[in-house]
Design a protein around this nucleic acid. Structure first.
Lengths: 117, 117
DNA sequence: CGTATCTATTGACAAACGTCAATCGAACTG
DNA sequence: CAGTTCGATTGACGTTTGTCAATAGATACG
């Protein structure tokens, strides 16, 4: 079996024409791609991915003050990462007195997860 | 059932001590988090995610000249995105004469996919 | 009421990003 | 060989990102 049989352009386009039409189109539309890439982008930092890992594996809600010592960054940097996750919809938070408790919205990960599988 | 029972800090820390020890730790180690977030970051752009979608759904290898007209960006921008996907290991390419054919390395997506599921 | 604690916000900065126009290099065509 | 085509690279640009120090705001405690 010769895989080259599936390679489409065989010869150079003669004049000023583009070499070829697309023969394959995406299955995801622009809106889907934007939603999923926004989620992927939010997960595209090791600290944020680890935060989601911690929050997701934990049944209840986790206080920020328990999250800060897990990482080698300042409190304000961690707050910034949590905000990005909140803006992406991946996590949400709840104030209780002095403390802020964070938890994951698992539905927000589903579309990307399904696409990846 | 009162969910507040699971919230750990109940009262302010008295002196100069931090408010609480972490009660939950990540399941992913630093290296895993870095690998997976690098993949997520590469997918964190709608054009790149769509590129992976196109390449992945296609059995064979796809010529760059068929990819360019799918997007509203210049050829050099698309080449730049393909390079990022290559650098992340998600895709690879093969030259055949004038043309470059791209294809997905599905293994590179597996770790992130498994973590997300 | 004053002070301490916890979290979010602001401002600053260097690095990385997304984009384009222009150019380069390799390879094919005539 | 001369010209053309495809793709990658370079350089420039404005924007976004990750980080910290400093500060603000809300709440609790004494």
């Amino acid at each position: 079996m010769s895989p080259e049989l599936t390679l489409t352009p065989k010869q150079k386009s003669p004049n000023g024409q583009p070499c070829c039409e697309p023969v394959v189109y995406p299955d995801v539309d622009r809106a889907e791609a934007e939603r999923m890439s926004a989620i992927a982008k939010a997960l595209g930092d090791p600290i944020r991915l680890t935060l989601v890992d911690v929050l997701r594996k934990h049944a209840g809600k986790v206080c920020v003050c328990e999250l800060v010592p897990l990482f080698d960054v300042s409190q304000s940097t961690l707050s910034h990462h949590l905000k990005k996750l909140r803006d992406a919809g991946i996590v949400d938070s709840e104030r209780k007195g002095l403390w802020a408790y964070y938890y994951v919205n698992p539905e927000e990960l589903e579309e990307l997860s399904a696409w990846l599988s």
